[in-house]
């Protein structure tokens, strides 16, 4: 079967960028665990998307194609060694507590990478299961199972906190 190359136009990408920037940035920041890195990932991903716009085959929504690039760029940046965040174990400043009263950040950080990414795409990007599957390159059923597993872990934590 031959695939007709459709390509994306810069104006399509610009519209997507302007409309959905905050969603992209939020997911990328969550993957990178750093707001500035997340933004860098989105900028770099869109640069890549513009450069490779002719590679877009038109077989799915253009947004899913861009999401894949954003997630890949965020993963790449997350793996790159960053300037070491200063971690003063100061009894006075940190008190050993997270700023997040539910410690949700800690619990999400402890989830497997695929569960984390599926969560971010679901809740930050508001993507449907099918779109998440496309972005992560997995089956729709696997998305469902992945999110279910993440929910189960986090529900347990949220219920513990409520008690």
């Amino acid at each position: 079967m031959s695939v007709r190359r459709k390509g994306a136009t810069p104006s399509q990408l610009e519209t997507l960028y302007r409309d959905r920037f905050e969603h992209f940035a939020r997911v990328a920041s969550a993957i990178c665990r750093d707001v500035d890195l997340g933004r860098d990932a989105v900028q770099a991903a869109f640069m890549t998307a513009v450069r490779r716009r002719r590679d877009y085959r038109g077989s799915g929504p253009i947004e899913a194609w861009v999401w894949r690039i954003v997630v890949n760029e965020a993963r790449r940046l997350a793996r790159e060694p960053q300037a070491e965040a200063f971690d003063a174990e100061s009894e006075l400043a940190g008190n050993g507590h997270s700023e997040d009263p539910l410690d949700l950040r800690v619990w999400i950080a402890a989830l497997p990478e695929r569960q984390r990414e599926a969560l971010f795409l679901r809740y930050y990007a508001d993507l449907e299961y099918r779109a998440i599957a496309e972005v992560l390159g997995i089956e729709v059923g696997t998305v469902s199972a992945t999110l279910s597993a993440a929910h189960q872990t986090l529900r347990k934590r949220l219920e513990e906190v409520r008690r």
Binding site: A30, G38, R39, Y123, Y124
Partner: peptide
């Protein structure tokens, strides 16, 4: 909770 964790950019 997730929206609270990562600020909108």
């Amino acid at each position: 909770e997730l929206h609270r964790l990562v600020p909108a950019d």
